[in-house]
Amino acid sequence: MKKIFKKIKELSSGEIMSNILDGSTEPDPSREQLKEIKKETIKSLEENPDFEAIVERQRKSFNLLYYSFAFIGSVCLIGVLLYLVSMLPRYGVENPRTVEVVKRYVENGLEETGAVNIVSGMILDYRAFDTLGESHVLFTALICVNILLRIDIKNMRSDYEDYYTIKRDVYYDMSHDGVLRLAAFVFSPCILTFGIYILLNGQISPGGGFSGGAVLGAGLILMSAGFGFDKVDKIFTLKINNIVTFSALTFYSFAKGYVFFTGANGIENHIPKGTPGAILSGGLILPLDIAVGIVVACTMFGFYSLFRRGSVASHING
């Protein structure tokens, strides 16, 4: 009876394996202290074989429970989803319910938004609020990765760990691999041009802000992997990154805010729609595409740079 009560207590307090975590808010033990703790634990395990058996048994029963729950859960989810998908309307057959909304997009999309590419017109004109949110999702991810990975060189202790990391990345800075350098030399101009082409043609051909920005970001990554960070740092400093991201996001928020404000209040917003098929068409779609594309490119290159060397732009230039 006591055992059952104990087991319920363990299960309900969620501390099956984590007895160590219940404690004070003292700072983590330092390296030397950790080594001491490790030595003591190994010694106590060797002296007391029962303890090891108990931990082993606990771990085995936990593993058994965990794997069986995981298996049952996955199989249930797969079964439910397969059943649901089989009951949905078929792909390609016209569903009388879905038609109401989609019909207007397809038939009147060109004249109402001015964009030949209806998908761009839809995400940046009809349902622009969602795209406003989506571009800020990317910005959030960039901030979170900054928080986790950014090494602040002013506060950096001359600890062996950080110093070694930076030195190692400096060694791997310029690629000593001929294939990579040649590939970067040949391909990165093509990729960057292609990215700009996709961006500018968002309203005419498939593409748009997100795709164009991702391709641009990939081009910048290839350039910095092949030629080293020095070459890219000349055109992409921290200041440029911050100013560009800030202005792109602000422009997006306020432009769309203006459109929502005028649309809801019935005022005419004097944004020209242009002739469909030309580059300068589609109202606000071209500027918004450029803004989103720039944010995405800076974010992608920022991720790569933070992962490689702990800061978006050079340590030297700040």
Binding site: L132, H136, F139, I143, N242, T245, F246, L249, T250, S253, F254, K256, G257, F260, F261, A264, N265, G266
Partner: peptide, 25 residues
């Protein structure tokens, strides 16, 4: 139409703008 009707939009857009601004300050 009263100006107060725009306030929900303002709360959202101004908060998004503030986040970009705080990154610079």
């Amino acid at each position: 139409m009263e100006f107060v009707r725009n306030f929900p939009l303002f709360t959202i857009v101004l908060s998004l703008f503030s986040s970009a601004l705080c990154m610079m300050l």
